[in-house]
């Protein structure tokens, strides 16, 4: 059926361009404007559709090296997902916990998870770095980062 990866990617891209085109055709237009807000998006949408058709039929094949890039051991996928989860939590609590606390927790846990064994060093770095950066931004440069639940 779909012999190679490029064809599958091409189908995803075609769907994307269709979606973009539908939105472009819904944009409002105004009289007396030669090229309206929808002109360029429509052109881009059709262009992407054409290119994805081109990709579908193109003879380009991935090199072995490229295929190897896509081959990821399950273990690594899991670690990537765990780090994503940590980053996600980091963002979610960025403002409520405050920059310092959220960052300390994130840097420490992600460094630990990724296999750094010297926990003392890790703790010192992950506490010092955010505090130094926070002080530079907030006190020296007057750029407010979220203070969160800490009083400063």
């Amino acid at each position: 059926m779909l012999k190679n990866v490029n064809q599958r990617v091409a189908i995803v891209l075609a769907v994307l361009s269709a979606f973009y085109l539908v939105l472009s055709y819904q944009l409002p237009t105004y009289p007396y404007i030669p090229v309206d807000a929808d002109g360029v998006p429509k052109a881009l949408g059709w262009l992407l559709l054409a290119l994805s058709v081109g990709l579908f039929f193109s003879k380009d094949r991935d090199s072995e090296e490229q295929k190897a890039k896509r081959h990821i051991p399950k273990k690594d996928v899991i670690s990537l997902l765990v780090v994503f989860l940590l980053v996600f939590l980091y963002i979610t609590f960025f403002e409520s916990l405050g920059f310092i606390l959220a960052t300390v927790l994130f840097v420490f846990s992600s460094t630990w998870y990724l296999g750094y064994k010297k926990h003392m060093v890790n703790a010192i770095v992950s506490i010092l770095f955010p505090i130094i950066l926070y002080s530079i931004f907030v006190y020296m440069l007057q750029i407010r980062l979220p203070a969160g639940i800490l009083p400063f």
Binding site: V87, F94, T103, F106, V107, S110, T111, Y113, L114
Partner: peptide, 13 residues
């Protein structure tokens, strides 16, 4: 491992 965490933090700020 630490560099990875710090780069993420750096990009965030």
């Amino acid at each position: 491992p630490m560099l990875i965490s710090l780069v993420i933090m750096f990009s965030f700020i």
